[in-house]
Nucleic acid binder design. Structure first.
Lengths: 225, 225
DNA sequence: CTACAGAAAAGTGTCAACACTATATGGAAT
DNA sequence: ATTCCATATAGTGTTGACACTTTTCTGTAG
Protein backbone atom coordinates (compact mmCIF):
# COMPACT_ATOMS: atom_id res chain seq x y z
CA UNK A 1 0.00 0.00 0.00
CA UNK A 2 3.03 2.23 0.20
CA UNK A 3 3.68 4.38 -2.83
CA UNK A 4 5.71 1.42 -4.06
CA UNK A 5 9.32 2.47 -4.39
CA UNK A 6 11.08 0.80 -7.25
CA UNK A 7 14.84 0.25 -7.44
CA UNK A 8 15.08 3.10 -9.93
CA UNK A 9 13.78 5.50 -7.28
CA UNK A 10 16.27 4.23 -4.72
CA UNK A 11 19.18 4.53 -7.11
CA UNK A 12 17.99 7.98 -8.22
CA UNK A 13 18.02 9.23 -4.64
CA UNK A 14 21.29 7.45 -3.98
CA UNK A 15 23.08 9.06 -6.89
CA UNK A 16 21.67 12.46 -5.97
CA UNK A 17 22.97 11.97 -2.45
CA UNK A 18 26.39 11.12 -3.86
CA UNK A 19 26.27 14.36 -5.82
CA UNK A 20 25.31 16.34 -2.73
CA UNK A 21 28.09 14.90 -0.60
CA UNK A 22 30.61 15.20 -3.39
CA UNK A 23 31.27 11.47 -3.54
CA UNK A 24 30.68 12.07 -7.21
CA UNK A 25 32.51 15.34 -7.93
CA UNK A 26 30.89 17.98 -10.10
CA UNK A 27 31.76 17.21 -13.68
CA UNK A 28 33.00 13.77 -12.69
CA UNK A 29 32.23 10.66 -14.68
CA UNK A 30 29.30 8.44 -13.70
CA UNK A 31 30.00 4.78 -14.31
CA UNK A 32 27.00 2.47 -14.64
CA UNK A 33 28.74 -0.71 -13.56
CA UNK A 34 30.33 0.89 -10.51
CA UNK A 35 27.02 2.33 -9.37
CA UNK A 36 25.27 -0.97 -9.99
CA UNK A 37 27.74 -2.69 -7.69
CA UNK A 38 27.50 0.13 -5.16
CA UNK A 39 23.73 -0.28 -4.83
CA UNK A 40 23.67 -4.05 -5.31
CA UNK A 41 21.46 -3.87 -8.37
CA UNK A 42 21.76 -4.65 -12.04
CA UNK A 43 22.75 -2.04 -14.58
CA UNK A 44 19.17 -1.69 -15.82
CA UNK A 45 17.79 0.36 -12.93
CA UNK A 46 20.99 2.41 -12.88
CA UNK A 47 20.58 3.26 -16.55
CA UNK A 48 17.01 4.43 -15.98
CA UNK A 49 17.95 6.44 -12.90
CA UNK A 50 20.75 8.10 -14.84
CA UNK A 51 18.33 8.90 -17.64
CA UNK A 52 15.94 10.44 -15.13
CA UNK A 53 18.73 12.53 -13.63
CA UNK A 54 19.64 13.54 -17.15
CA UNK A 55 16.07 14.71 -17.64
CA UNK A 56 16.43 16.87 -14.54
CA UNK A 57 19.63 18.36 -15.90
CA UNK A 58 21.87 16.90 -13.20
CA UNK A 59 23.74 14.57 -15.52
CA UNK A 60 24.79 15.10 -19.12
CA UNK A 61 25.39 12.31 -21.54
CA UNK A 62 25.62 11.47 -25.24
CA UNK A 63 25.14 8.06 -26.81
CA UNK A 64 27.97 5.62 -26.12
CA UNK A 65 29.82 8.25 -24.06
CA UNK A 66 30.30 8.15 -20.33
CA UNK A 67 27.82 10.17 -18.36
CA UNK A 68 29.14 13.16 -16.45
CA UNK A 69 27.72 14.97 -13.47
CA UNK A 70 26.68 18.51 -14.26
CA UNK A 71 29.41 21.08 -13.71
CA UNK A 72 27.51 23.84 -11.93
CA UNK A 73 29.25 27.15 -12.26
CA UNK A 74 28.08 30.59 -11.23
CA UNK A 75 26.97 31.41 -14.76
CA UNK A 76 24.57 28.43 -14.72
CA UNK A 77 23.14 29.60 -11.42
CA UNK A 78 22.60 33.09 -12.79
CA UNK A 79 20.63 31.60 -15.68
CA UNK A 80 18.54 29.55 -13.27
CA UNK A 81 17.83 32.61 -11.14
CA UNK A 82 16.82 34.61 -14.21
CA UNK A 83 14.33 31.89 -15.01
CA UNK A 84 13.14 31.73 -11.42
CA UNK A 85 12.68 35.49 -11.35
CA UNK A 86 9.99 35.51 -13.99
CA UNK A 87 8.33 32.23 -13.02
CA UNK A 88 8.16 32.99 -9.30
CA UNK A 89 6.76 36.36 -10.28
CA UNK A 90 3.98 34.75 -12.27
CA UNK A 91 3.52 32.22 -9.48
CA UNK A 92 2.83 34.83 -6.82
CA UNK A 93 0.68 36.84 -9.20
CA UNK A 94 -1.57 33.86 -9.85
CA UNK A 95 -1.59 32.87 -6.19
CA UNK A 96 -2.68 36.37 -5.21
CA UNK A 97 -5.57 36.11 -7.64
CA UNK A 98 -6.57 32.53 -6.93
CA UNK A 99 -5.93 31.68 -3.29
CA UNK A 100 -8.86 31.66 -0.92
CA UNK A 101 -8.92 34.02 2.03
CA UNK A 102 -8.59 31.05 4.34
CA UNK A 103 -5.61 29.64 2.49
CA UNK A 104 -3.86 32.99 2.52
CA UNK A 105 -4.54 33.44 6.22
CA UNK A 106 -3.13 29.99 6.90
CA UNK A 107 -0.02 30.81 4.92
CA UNK A 108 0.57 33.99 6.92
CA UNK A 109 0.14 32.20 10.23
CA UNK A 110 2.44 29.34 9.25
CA UNK A 111 5.10 31.78 8.17
CA UNK A 112 4.81 33.67 11.45
CA UNK A 113 5.17 30.41 13.34
CA UNK A 114 8.21 29.19 11.44
CA UNK A 115 10.37 32.13 12.48
CA UNK A 116 12.68 34.18 10.34
CA UNK A 117 14.93 31.46 9.00
CA UNK A 118 14.72 27.71 8.73
CA UNK A 119 12.33 27.04 5.92
CA UNK A 120 12.64 29.99 3.62
CA UNK A 121 12.14 27.85 0.58
CA UNK A 122 8.86 26.60 1.97
CA UNK A 123 7.23 29.98 1.40
CA UNK A 124 8.03 29.83 -2.29
CA UNK A 125 6.72 26.28 -2.48
CA UNK A 126 3.48 27.18 -0.72
CA UNK A 127 2.95 30.11 -3.07
CA UNK A 128 3.61 27.94 -6.11
CA UNK A 129 1.05 25.50 -4.75
CA UNK A 130 -1.42 28.33 -4.32
CA UNK A 131 -0.92 29.53 -7.87
CA UNK A 132 -3.15 26.71 -9.06
CA UNK A 133 -0.81 26.18 -11.99
CA UNK A 134 0.57 22.67 -11.70
CA UNK A 135 3.17 23.19 -14.40
CA UNK A 136 4.65 26.21 -12.67
CA UNK A 137 4.57 24.34 -9.39
CA UNK A 138 6.37 21.38 -10.93
CA UNK A 139 8.99 23.57 -12.57
CA UNK A 140 9.81 25.45 -9.36
CA UNK A 141 9.44 22.67 -6.82
CA UNK A 142 10.67 19.67 -8.78
CA UNK A 143 12.90 20.59 -11.69
CA UNK A 144 14.76 23.61 -10.35
CA UNK A 145 14.65 22.45 -6.76
CA UNK A 146 17.23 19.71 -7.25
CA UNK A 147 19.64 22.04 -9.00
CA UNK A 148 19.35 24.64 -6.25
CA UNK A 149 19.89 22.07 -3.53
CA UNK A 150 22.93 20.67 -5.31
CA UNK A 151 24.46 24.10 -5.83
CA UNK A 152 23.88 25.18 -2.26
CA UNK A 153 25.35 21.94 -0.93
CA UNK A 154 28.47 22.11 -3.04
CA UNK A 155 29.20 25.84 -2.94
CA UNK A 156 29.37 26.34 0.82
CA UNK A 157 25.65 27.10 1.00
CA UNK A 158 26.31 30.82 1.37
CA UNK A 159 25.34 31.97 -2.10
CA UNK A 160 21.66 32.48 -2.70
CA UNK A 161 20.77 32.77 0.98
CA UNK A 162 20.63 36.37 2.15
CA UNK A 163 20.06 38.20 5.39
CA UNK A 164 17.01 40.31 4.72
CA UNK A 165 15.17 37.65 2.74
CA UNK A 166 12.70 37.29 5.58
CA UNK A 167 11.73 40.96 5.51
CA UNK A 168 11.19 40.72 1.79
CA UNK A 169 8.99 37.68 2.26
CA UNK A 170 6.83 39.65 4.67
CA UNK A 171 6.44 42.42 2.11
CA UNK A 172 5.31 39.92 -0.48
CA UNK A 173 2.82 38.29 1.87
CA UNK A 174 1.37 41.68 2.77
CA UNK A 175 0.88 42.48 -0.92
CA UNK A 176 -0.86 39.15 -1.35
CA UNK A 177 -3.20 39.82 1.55
CA UNK A 178 -4.01 43.20 0.00
CA UNK A 179 -4.81 41.27 -3.21
CA UNK A 180 -2.43 43.46 -5.14
CA UNK A 181 -1.21 40.93 -7.69
CA UNK A 182 0.92 43.35 -9.67
CA UNK A 183 2.73 44.56 -6.57
CA UNK A 184 3.28 41.04 -5.31
CA UNK A 185 4.79 40.08 -8.66
CA UNK A 186 7.09 43.11 -8.67
CA UNK A 187 8.26 42.44 -5.13
CA UNK A 188 8.94 38.80 -5.85
CA UNK A 189 10.90 39.60 -8.98
CA UNK A 190 12.96 42.18 -7.11
CA UNK A 191 13.45 39.67 -4.31
CA UNK A 192 15.00 37.13 -6.64
CA UNK A 193 16.79 39.70 -8.79
CA UNK A 194 18.70 40.75 -5.70
CA UNK A 195 19.97 37.20 -5.31
CA UNK A 196 20.93 37.19 -8.97
CA UNK A 197 22.94 40.35 -8.46
CA UNK A 198 24.81 38.72 -5.59
CA UNK A 199 25.74 35.90 -7.94
CA UNK A 200 26.80 38.42 -10.56
CA UNK A 201 29.18 40.03 -8.08
CA UNK A 202 30.54 36.58 -7.26
CA UNK A 203 31.14 35.98 -10.95
CA UNK A 204 33.02 39.25 -11.38
CA UNK A 205 35.15 38.72 -8.28
CA UNK A 206 36.05 35.07 -8.65
CA UNK A 207 36.68 33.76 -12.15
CA UNK A 208 37.40 30.24 -10.88
CA UNK A 209 34.05 28.49 -10.27
CA UNK A 210 32.91 26.14 -7.55
CA UNK A 211 33.64 23.05 -9.56
CA UNK A 212 36.06 20.41 -8.41
CA UNK A 213 36.29 18.85 -11.82
CA UNK A 214 39.38 16.85 -12.54
CA UNK A 215 39.44 18.17 -16.07
CA UNK A 216 40.32 15.24 -18.31
CA UNK A 217 42.34 15.85 -21.42
CA UNK A 218 39.99 16.27 -24.35
CA UNK A 219 39.84 13.30 -26.64
CA UNK A 220 39.57 13.50 -30.37
CA UNK A 221 35.85 12.98 -30.83
CA UNK A 222 34.48 14.38 -27.62
CA UNK A 223 33.22 17.64 -29.12
CA UNK A 224 29.69 16.38 -29.54
CA UNK A 225 26.26 17.29 -28.24
CA UNK B 1 30.43 10.11 -37.33
CA UNK B 2 26.75 10.96 -37.32
CA UNK B 3 25.31 12.13 -34.02
CA UNK B 4 24.85 8.42 -33.34
CA UNK B 5 21.17 7.66 -33.05
CA UNK B 6 20.40 4.94 -30.56
CA UNK B 7 17.31 2.76 -30.60
CA UNK B 8 15.92 4.78 -27.70
CA UNK B 9 15.92 7.90 -29.90
CA UNK B 10 14.16 6.09 -32.70
CA UNK B 11 11.50 4.71 -30.41
CA UNK B 12 11.10 8.10 -28.72
CA UNK B 13 10.37 9.77 -32.05
CA UNK B 14 8.19 6.86 -33.10
CA UNK B 15 5.99 7.04 -30.03
CA UNK B 16 5.73 10.81 -30.33
CA UNK B 17 4.63 10.38 -33.94
CA UNK B 18 2.00 7.89 -32.80
CA UNK B 19 0.76 10.49 -30.33
CA UNK B 20 0.62 13.17 -33.03
CA UNK B 21 -1.31 11.02 -35.46
CA UNK B 22 -3.61 9.73 -32.78
CA UNK B 23 -2.55 6.12 -33.24
CA UNK B 24 -2.16 6.32 -29.48
CA UNK B 25 -5.20 8.29 -28.32
CA UNK B 26 -4.83 11.01 -25.69
CA UNK B 27 -5.13 9.36 -22.31
CA UNK B 28 -4.74 5.94 -23.91
CA UNK B 29 -2.59 3.21 -22.43
CA UNK B 30 0.96 2.68 -23.65
CA UNK B 31 1.97 -0.96 -23.66
CA UNK B 32 5.69 -1.73 -23.59
CA UNK B 33 5.47 -5.15 -25.21
CA UNK B 34 3.23 -3.95 -28.03
CA UNK B 35 5.52 -1.04 -28.82
CA UNK B 36 8.58 -3.28 -28.66
CA UNK B 37 7.04 -5.53 -31.29
CA UNK B 38 5.91 -2.51 -33.34
CA UNK B 39 9.46 -1.18 -33.59
CA UNK B 40 11.19 -4.56 -33.70
CA UNK B 41 13.22 -3.93 -30.57
CA UNK B 42 13.43 -5.33 -27.09
CA UNK B 43 11.48 -3.85 -24.21
CA UNK B 44 14.57 -2.16 -22.78
CA UNK B 45 14.80 0.71 -25.27
CA UNK B 46 11.03 1.12 -25.11
CA UNK B 47 11.18 1.48 -21.35
CA UNK B 48 13.84 4.16 -21.60
CA UNK B 49 11.99 6.01 -24.34
CA UNK B 50 8.82 5.96 -22.26
CA UNK B 51 10.75 7.28 -19.28
CA UNK B 52 12.13 10.09 -21.43
CA UNK B 53 8.63 10.95 -22.67
CA UNK B 54 7.51 10.87 -19.06
CA UNK B 55 10.23 13.39 -18.28
CA UNK B 56 8.83 15.66 -20.99
CA UNK B 57 5.34 15.33 -19.51
CA UNK B 58 3.88 13.50 -22.49
CA UNK B 59 3.32 10.25 -20.64
CA UNK B 60 2.28 9.66 -17.05
CA UNK B 61 3.06 6.55 -15.13
CA UNK B 62 3.37 5.09 -11.64
CA UNK B 63 5.34 2.03 -10.64
CA UNK B 64 3.83 -1.25 -11.84
CA UNK B 65 0.95 0.62 -13.50
CA UNK B 66 0.43 0.92 -17.21
CA UNK B 67 1.71 4.12 -18.72
CA UNK B 68 -0.89 6.48 -20.16
CA UNK B 69 -0.52 9.21 -22.76
CA UNK B 70 -1.11 12.66 -21.36
CA UNK B 71 -4.71 13.81 -21.56
CA UNK B 72 -4.30 17.37 -22.81
CA UNK B 73 -7.30 19.49 -22.01
CA UNK B 74 -7.81 23.21 -22.41
CA UNK B 75 -7.01 23.84 -18.75
CA UNK B 76 -3.57 22.27 -19.19
CA UNK B 77 -2.95 24.47 -22.19
CA UNK B 78 -3.92 27.56 -20.24
CA UNK B 79 -1.41 26.64 -17.57
CA UNK B 80 1.28 26.13 -20.20
CA UNK B 81 0.50 29.49 -21.76
CA UNK B 82 0.65 31.21 -18.38
CA UNK B 83 4.11 29.76 -17.94
CA UNK B 84 5.10 30.73 -21.45
CA UNK B 85 3.87 34.26 -20.91
CA UNK B 86 6.38 35.04 -18.18
CA UNK B 87 9.27 33.01 -19.61
CA UNK B 88 8.94 34.37 -23.14
CA UNK B 89 8.78 37.81 -21.58
CA UNK B 90 12.05 37.26 -19.77
CA UNK B 91 13.46 35.69 -22.92
CA UNK B 92 12.84 38.74 -25.09
CA UNK B 93 13.99 41.06 -22.33
CA UNK B 94 17.33 39.33 -22.09
CA UNK B 95 17.64 39.05 -25.86
CA UNK B 96 17.05 42.78 -26.21
CA UNK B 97 19.86 43.40 -23.75
CA UNK B 98 22.29 40.79 -25.00
CA UNK B 99 21.96 40.35 -28.75
CA UNK B 100 24.51 41.99 -30.97
CA UNK B 101 23.41 44.60 -33.50
CA UNK B 102 24.35 42.18 -36.27
CA UNK B 103 22.33 39.34 -34.77
CA UNK B 104 19.31 41.54 -34.35
CA UNK B 105 19.59 42.85 -37.89
CA UNK B 106 19.81 39.28 -39.17
CA UNK B 107 16.72 38.32 -37.22
CA UNK B 108 14.71 41.22 -38.68
CA UNK B 109 15.75 40.35 -42.21
CA UNK B 110 14.98 36.67 -41.81
CA UNK B 111 11.56 37.47 -40.44
CA UNK B 112 10.88 39.81 -43.36
CA UNK B 113 11.91 37.08 -45.77
CA UNK B 114 9.79 34.37 -44.21
CA UNK B 115 6.52 36.18 -44.83
CA UNK B 116 3.65 36.66 -42.47
CA UNK B 117 2.84 33.07 -41.67
CA UNK B 118 4.65 29.80 -42.00
CA UNK B 119 7.27 29.78 -39.30
CA UNK B 120 5.75 31.87 -36.55
CA UNK B 121 7.26 29.70 -33.88
CA UNK B 122 10.70 30.26 -35.34
CA UNK B 123 10.69 33.86 -34.15
CA UNK B 124 10.18 32.78 -30.57
CA UNK B 125 12.93 30.18 -30.92
CA UNK B 126 15.37 32.70 -32.37
CA UNK B 127 14.65 35.13 -29.56
CA UNK B 128 15.13 32.42 -26.94
CA UNK B 129 18.44 31.60 -28.58
CA UNK B 130 19.41 35.25 -28.45
CA UNK B 131 18.58 35.53 -24.77
CA UNK B 132 21.86 33.82 -23.98
CA UNK B 133 20.08 31.85 -21.27
CA UNK B 134 20.36 28.20 -22.20
CA UNK B 135 17.91 27.08 -19.54
CA UNK B 136 15.19 29.37 -20.82
CA UNK B 137 15.96 28.29 -24.35
CA UNK B 138 15.70 24.63 -23.39
CA UNK B 139 12.44 25.15 -21.52
CA UNK B 140 10.76 26.98 -24.39
CA UNK B 141 12.22 25.11 -27.34
CA UNK B 142 12.51 21.60 -25.95
CA UNK B 143 10.21 20.95 -23.03
CA UNK B 144 7.17 23.02 -23.93
CA UNK B 145 7.63 22.64 -27.66
CA UNK B 146 6.56 19.01 -27.70
CA UNK B 147 3.43 19.70 -25.69
CA UNK B 148 2.43 22.58 -27.97
CA UNK B 149 2.96 20.50 -31.09
CA UNK B 150 0.93 17.66 -29.67
CA UNK B 151 -1.93 19.90 -28.65
CA UNK B 152 -2.04 21.71 -31.98
CA UNK B 153 -1.97 18.42 -33.87
CA UNK B 154 -4.77 16.84 -31.89
CA UNK B 155 -7.07 19.82 -31.39
CA UNK B 156 -7.60 20.81 -35.00
CA UNK B 157 -4.60 23.15 -34.90
CA UNK B 158 -6.82 26.21 -34.71
CA UNK B 159 -6.34 27.11 -31.07
CA UNK B 160 -3.24 29.11 -30.26
CA UNK B 161 -2.69 30.33 -33.80
CA UNK B 162 -4.16 33.78 -34.33
CA UNK B 163 -4.59 36.19 -37.22
CA UNK B 164 -2.72 39.25 -36.09
CA UNK B 165 0.15 37.39 -34.51
CA UNK B 166 2.43 38.61 -37.27
CA UNK B 167 1.71 42.26 -36.57
CA UNK B 168 2.43 41.68 -32.90
CA UNK B 169 5.71 40.04 -33.80
CA UNK B 170 6.71 43.12 -35.76
CA UNK B 171 5.94 45.32 -32.78
CA UNK B 172 8.15 43.18 -30.59
CA UNK B 173 11.01 43.22 -33.08
CA UNK B 174 10.78 47.00 -33.34
CA UNK B 175 11.02 47.32 -29.58
CA UNK B 176 14.07 45.06 -29.63
CA UNK B 177 15.76 47.16 -32.29
CA UNK B 178 15.06 50.25 -30.18
CA UNK B 179 16.76 48.36 -27.31
CA UNK B 180 13.73 48.94 -25.15
CA UNK B 181 13.84 45.75 -23.08
CA UNK B 182 10.93 46.65 -20.80
CA UNK B 183 8.65 47.43 -23.73
CA UNK B 184 9.66 44.27 -25.57
CA UNK B 185 8.84 42.22 -22.49
CA UNK B 186 5.45 43.89 -22.06
CA UNK B 187 4.56 43.38 -25.70
CA UNK B 188 5.58 39.74 -25.62
CA UNK B 189 3.58 39.08 -22.48
CA UNK B 190 0.53 40.76 -23.97
CA UNK B 191 1.08 38.80 -27.17
CA UNK B 192 0.88 35.49 -25.34
CA UNK B 193 -1.76 36.61 -22.86
CA UNK B 194 -4.08 37.21 -25.82
CA UNK B 195 -3.66 33.58 -26.83
CA UNK B 196 -4.39 32.55 -23.26
CA UNK B 197 -7.60 34.56 -23.32
CA UNK B 198 -8.67 32.77 -26.49
CA UNK B 199 -8.18 29.48 -24.68
CA UNK B 200 -10.13 30.81 -21.72
CA UNK B 201 -13.09 31.59 -23.99
CA UNK B 202 -12.81 28.09 -25.40
CA UNK B 203 -12.95 26.69 -21.90
CA UNK B 204 -16.06 28.70 -21.02
CA UNK B 205 -17.85 27.78 -24.24
CA UNK B 206 -17.03 24.11 -24.47
CA UNK B 207 -16.91 22.10 -21.25
CA UNK B 208 -16.05 18.87 -23.10
CA UNK B 209 -12.32 18.86 -23.82
CA UNK B 210 -10.38 17.69 -26.87
CA UNK B 211 -9.58 14.32 -25.41
CA UNK B 212 -10.64 11.09 -27.03
CA UNK B 213 -10.03 9.06 -23.93
CA UNK B 214 -11.90 5.85 -23.59
CA UNK B 215 -12.35 6.39 -19.87
CA UNK B 216 -11.77 3.03 -18.18
CA UNK B 217 -13.72 2.17 -15.09
CA UNK B 218 -11.72 3.03 -12.00
CA UNK B 219 -10.16 0.09 -10.27
CA UNK B 220 -9.85 -0.32 -6.58
CA UNK B 221 -6.29 0.82 -5.99
CA UNK B 222 -5.83 3.27 -8.82
CA UNK B 223 -6.10 6.39 -6.69
CA UNK B 224 -2.40 6.81 -6.38
CA UNK B 225 0.20 9.38 -7.35
C1' DC C 1 -28.22 -10.24 -9.36
C1' DT C 2 -24.49 -8.43 -6.64
C1' DA C 3 -20.43 -8.66 -3.83
C1' DC C 4 -16.54 -10.86 -2.60
C1' DA C 5 -12.39 -14.04 -2.69
C1' DG C 6 -9.13 -16.67 -5.06
C1' DA C 7 -6.84 -18.16 -9.36
C1' DA C 8 -5.36 -17.09 -14.02
C1' DA C 9 -3.66 -13.72 -17.22
C1' DA C 10 -1.39 -9.60 -18.57
C1' DG C 11 1.96 -6.20 -17.72
C1' DT C 12 5.81 -4.11 -15.43
C1' DG C 13 10.44 -4.52 -12.81
C1' DT C 14 14.87 -6.70 -12.64
C1' DC C 15 18.64 -9.40 -14.02
C1' DA C 16 22.75 -11.42 -16.43
C1' DA C 17 24.78 -12.22 -20.85
C1' DC C 18 25.98 -10.57 -25.37
C1' DA C 19 26.87 -6.83 -29.15
C1' DC C 20 28.60 -2.55 -30.29
C1' DT C 21 31.39 1.79 -29.54
C1' DA C 22 34.85 4.60 -27.45
C1' DT C 23 39.04 4.94 -24.92
C1' DA C 24 43.56 3.35 -23.69
C1' DT C 25 47.71 0.73 -24.89
C1' DG C 26 51.64 -0.54 -27.46
C1' DG C 27 54.54 -0.75 -31.37
C1' DA C 28 56.23 0.70 -35.99
C1' DA C 29 57.42 4.40 -39.12
C1' DT C 30 58.95 9.07 -39.59
C1' DA D 1 60.86 11.96 -29.34
C1' DT D 2 56.51 12.24 -31.99
C1' DT D 3 52.82 10.70 -34.91
C1' DC D 4 50.11 7.28 -36.66
C1' DC D 5 47.78 2.88 -36.86
C1' DA D 6 46.35 -1.62 -35.09
C1' DT D 7 44.96 -3.93 -31.13
C1' DA D 8 43.26 -4.58 -26.39
C1' DT D 9 40.34 -3.00 -22.82
C1' DA D 10 36.66 -0.61 -20.62
C1' DG D 11 32.12 1.08 -20.94
C1' DT D 12 27.65 1.63 -23.09
C1' DG D 13 23.56 -0.38 -25.89
C1' DT D 14 20.55 -4.22 -26.47
C1' DT D 15 18.45 -8.52 -25.67
C1' DG D 16 15.62 -12.43 -23.76
C1' DA D 17 14.43 -14.73 -19.60
C1' DC D 18 12.66 -14.55 -14.99
C1' DA D 19 10.38 -12.22 -10.70
C1' DC D 20 6.96 -9.37 -8.91
C1' DT D 21 2.57 -6.65 -9.18
C1' DT D 22 -1.61 -5.45 -11.09
C1' DT D 23 -5.67 -6.51 -13.67
C1' DT D 24 -8.96 -9.62 -15.32
C1' DC D 25 -11.52 -13.74 -15.01
C1' DT D 26 -14.22 -17.20 -12.64
C1' DG D 27 -16.80 -19.31 -9.20
C1' DT D 28 -19.00 -19.06 -4.80
C1' DA D 29 -21.77 -17.13 -1.07
C1' DG D 30 -25.13 -13.83 0.28
Amino acid sequence: MDPQRTLVDTVFDGIFEMLLTGEIPLGGVVNEATLAERFNVSRGPVREAVKALQGRGLITKAAYFKARAVDLNVQDMIEIFQLRECVEGMSVKLATQNMSDEGLQQLLEDFEQAGSDGRVLDVHARIAEGSGNRRIQSLLCDELYYLLRLYRARSGSAAGRRENASAEHWQILRAMRARDAELAESLMRAHIARATEALQRLLDAEPAPVSDTAQPRRNRKEQRA
